[in-house]
């Protein structure tokens, strides 16, 4: 075991895969430098044919990814901020997500789209969003959201090796977060959730950076004899509902917290799944927490207010007990 940061975990995994498979290549805006430092140093190791800076055109990046994947390569295409992914929607939604289906399975598109999401660094409304629900809504693309260095390693391995388009969401605040990782690179199959903390009284579903807030709340509530089970789906699609229902069968109560603004968020999909399929196990209404339905504010105070906080989570948990 060793302790590394989330960004190191991603870099090391990309490096590991590029070493293992020369079909893997990385491109995006300033990937040779790495704005968040994630891809720093890869150019030196793998050369300009495999680590390529692109023009500032998300559509071109995504379109290129579709094209090179169609030829048999395994591109890792970086959209620096998830906020700009709107520019690449057509290649992602209409090409990458559809092609295998529309060609009757004769083609595979092994693409990893990676992007940085989330608020918390005062990057304001166009550099802070959490837009996972746009993609979890779309059939044909997998959505991965690692929260720890270990998960980043395991999920990246699976994402790169997957023959279908996979969107990996990385939370900006997590890049610096350190965590213990195994010495070996072991893949985590997509669609397997992780219970980050076991508990009996309430199931707390959390994704990305919210996992850490959830764990803090769970630890604090432990002192009040409230036992919180923290469930991290790790991949939003495929979604591990079996593990979630197993937890709810035990606790009968569920609080979902994601950083998305609440309206139409992926958390609503989780809530709907529970209501549809685990209804009889509920002993309290499903409580869903998310950011408020506004653009992400620039002001530090407002940004904090905008995001679901630990106090909000505590309050929500107590409301269902």
């Amino acid at each position: 075991m060793k302790e590394i940061s989330y960004s190191e975990a991603i870099r090391e995994t990309i490096r590991y895969e590029m070493k293992r498979d020369d079909k893997v290549l990385l491109f995006g805006e300033d990937v040779t430098i790495g704005v968040f430092g994630v891809t720093k140093g890869l150019l030196e190791e793998f050369g300009p044919n495999r680590v390529i800076d692109t023009p500032i055109s998300e559509e071109a990046i995504a379109g290129t990814a579709v094209g090179v994947a169609a030829t048999g390569l395994r591109p890792i295409a970086e959209i620096m901020f998830m906020d700009f992914i709107g520019l690449a929607i057509d290649p992602i939604i209409n090409q990458a997500a559809k092609m295998k289906y529309m060609f009757g399975g004769k083609i595979t598109l092994p693409i990893v789209f990676r992007c940085a999401a989330g608020a918390g660094i005062q990057a304001a409304g166009q550099h802070s969003q959490s837009l996972e629900s746009w993609f979890t809504h779309t059939p044909g693309i997998k959505v991965v959201y690692p929260s720890t260095p270990q998960d980043a390693i395991g999920l990246y391995l699976s994402a790169i090796r997957d023959d279908n388009p996979v969107l990996v969401i990385e939370h900006k605040l997590l890049y610096a977060v350190k965590g213990e990782v195994e010495d070996e690179f072991n893949a985590i199959p997509l669609g397997i959730a992780d219970i980050k903390k076991e508990g009996d009284d309430v199931t707390l579903v959390a994704t990305g950076a919210m996992v850490y807030k959830a764990l803090r709340v769970a630890e604090e509530l432990e002192k009040e004899n409230i036992s919180v089970e923290v469930y991290d789906p790790r991949t939003l699609f495929p979604f591990d509902k079996d593990r979630l229902f197993e937890s709810i069968t035990k606790t009968n109560k569920v609080v979902i917290v994601t950083e998305e603004n609440k309206r139409g968020a992926f958390s609503a999909e989780i809530a709907a799944l529970i209501a549809e399929e685990a209804f009889d196990y509920l002993d309290a209404p499903i409580v869903r927490l998310g950011a408020i339905n506004t653009p992400v504010p620039f002001s530090k105070v407002l940004e904090e207010y905008y995001l679901p906080g630990t106090e909000d989570i505590k309050k929500a948990i107590k409301s269902v007990l």
Binding site: N252, F279, D280, Y281, L282, D283, A284, P285
Partner: peptide, 13 residues
């Protein structure tokens, strides 16, 4: 009796 009784799904079950 006609008045709706509020109960959780688990309680009802």
């Amino acid at each position: 009796k006609e008045k709706r009784i509020k109960a959780t799904p688990l309680a009802k079950k």
